[in-house]
Amino acid sequence: MAQGRDEPHAEVAILMGLYHGEAFLPQQLDSLLAQDHGAWSLTASDDSETPESAALVRAFARDHPERSVALRRGPRRGFVRNFLTLLERAPRDAPYLAFADQDDRWFADKLSRAVAALSRVPATEPALYMAATEICDADLRVLGRSAPFARPPAFRNALVQSIGGANTMVMNRAAADLASDLAATVPDPASHDWWLYQVVSGCGGTVLFDPVPVMSYRQHGRNLVGANISAGARLDRLRRLLGGEFAALNARSLAAIAPVEARFTPDARAAAAAFRDARQGPWWRRLAALRRAGVYRQGRADTAALHVACLLGRL
């Protein structure tokens, strides 16, 4: 992707959700220290019932007094609300905000690539950066990489697909202000990364996808959300798309953006209204509404399955 120039003194406020993360947290914290963009702070929100993760963060803060490290008690309402609460209470003076999971390992240029890309967008325009990942097992052995995307990120894609993990996301101040103002008012979305993609694109902001992997995305037995790169995972995704699960996720997604739609562009509001119409009524009206909505997923087969789901009334 086209790169701007890294702003070495522009602070990135890193927001990390914790939940019994002691097994892998030290490696993730070490990868923050290894960033070639050195201007960052860390706020961690701990949803754990035991003290081990919090103790590691406190020790990290003691060992690195030159760093701004804050630890908060999480809301204990699930990982999505933990991250939305972090966003709601995020520092208001940092030019950039980044989400971080507790169990990944960032490459040294993760923040610098994000800041360089975001610096190309006018500061008054909401902008969201996300990137590809290197998929690894629990011991960081490489299994593959996240799927490439042929079509551009846009609201009509965001309505039906989340393409970037929150663990890769960095946003500029305008996007952070937009999202943090809304975070407390929305019902819990299916995922915070999907909601952010919808909100920033729906409000006319810029969404940037970096095809270069920026981190090791660790897959292990305690992942709350995992990668979907295998053939079996794709078949399972198709099964869920044509079953009832995708319809339930869409219902939650639409409920979560409803309080935000007044800020959407007219085009995004029209697309959202047409997509809602595609979920109800007789089949011919549903299909006509889906065409009006113009929504798409990144793969042709997935987009075709979207139309089949619409035809079957499972959208």
Rank of each mutant, 00 (worst) to 15 (best):
R92Y: 08
T124E: 15
A138C: 01
A94Q: 05
L84Q: 07
A108W: 02
L143P: 01
A147M: 05
A114S: 05
R105M: 02
E134R: 14
F107L: 15
F107G: 05
L128F: 10
G144Q: 04
S146H: 00
A131Q: 02
S146W: 01
L143F: 01
P122Y: 04
A100S: 13
D101Y: 04
L140F: 15
A127P: 02
D139W: 02
R145T: 11
M130L: 14
R105W: 02
G144H: 04
R92I: 04
F83E: 14
D93L: 00
A138Q: 09
R92G: 13
L84W: 10
A90V: 13
A150H: 11
G144E: 06
I135H: 00
Q102G: 14
D101H: 08
L87Y: 07
L128H: 08
P148R: 10
K110P: 00
V121R: 03
T124F: 12
M130V: 10
R145S: 10
D109E: 12
P122M: 08
E88W: 13
F83S: 15
T85C: 14
R92P: 05
T85E: 12
P148H: 06
F107P: 00
S146G: 10
R77K: 15
V142D: 10
K110G: 10
A131R: 07
I135P: 00
A131D: 06
Y129H: 06
E125M: 14
A127E: 05
R113S: 02
A98S: 13
S119E: 09
A117H: 06
A108R: 15
A147T: 10
S112E: 04
F79K: 13
P126E: 03
L118P: 04
V80D: 05
A94G: 04
A127L: 01
P122A: 04
I135M: 05
A94C: 04
R77V: 13
L86V: 08
I135K: 00
A94R: 06
L111Y: 05
D109R: 11
F149N: 09
R113G: 01
A108H: 13
L97W: 13
S112F: 03
L84A: 10
R77Y: 09
F149Y: 12
A138W: 00
F107M: 10
